[in-house]
């Protein structure tokens, strides 16, 4: 578990703030709050997860109440409000994926990593999550790695290759 992250400063790096500024520029000048979803992702990418203090720092930067930013962070599934492993693997088990092995793929990963959904391996490397539809049902079984990388047609051989590649 990546506990040392909680020790980090809640403040965001200049690089992250620059990225957030680019998001803010997409919206009318009096609607900075619109950038909160992207800003929280940028913050999560930097810190590994979203401690409350970081959410508050994002809120302050955008001129909104910390609670309003926390509402957003807790409403959308892909924000991590608790520490996660270096690699967060989310497996879709929804019906279209399940018809092509989504549940079996999840069972296979559980067996390989020795963890259940919402658990992290003892070495802090992997966290396993169950996901809802990712909009790629034709490529089932589908998995997401760290929210942003989609992996398609994940049969045993492909899963083995993915896990081996996560150093």
């Amino acid at each position: 578990m990546n506990t040392q992250n909680t020790m980090l400063s809640p403040e965001l790096s200049p690089e992250s703030l620059k990225k957030i500024d680019r998001e803010v520029a997409k919206y009318p000048a009096d609607q900075k709050q619109s950038a909160v979803m992207a800003a929280l992702v940028i913050a999560q990418d930097e810190k590994g997860w979203l401690p409350k203090e970081t959410i508050a720092a994002v809120a302050t930067y955008l001129g909104m109440a910390p609670m309003a930013a926390y509402e957003v962070a807790s409403f959308y599934n892909m924000y991590d409000l608790h520490p996660v492993g270096k690699y967060k693997i989310t497996v879709c088990t929804n019906l279209p994926c399940a018809l092509s092995g989504g549940v079996h793929a999840a069972d296979y990963v559980k067996h390989k990593l020795g963890v259940d959904f919402n658990e992290t391996t003892a070495d802090g490397k992997f966290t396993l999550k169950e996901g809802e539809c990712m909009g790629a049902c034709g490529d089932a079984p589908v998995m997401l790695v760290n929210n942003k990388r989609m992996c398609s047609f994940m049969l045993p051989e492909q899963i083995d290759a993915l896990l081996a590649e996560c150093k």
Binding site: S34, A68, M78, E132
Partner: peptide
Amino acid sequence: WGAYICGEETGLLESIEGK
């Protein structure tokens, strides 16, 4: 960032507004 409900058009608008 992971909410099916935002496919509903007014939920989507709320989401663009940062809520």
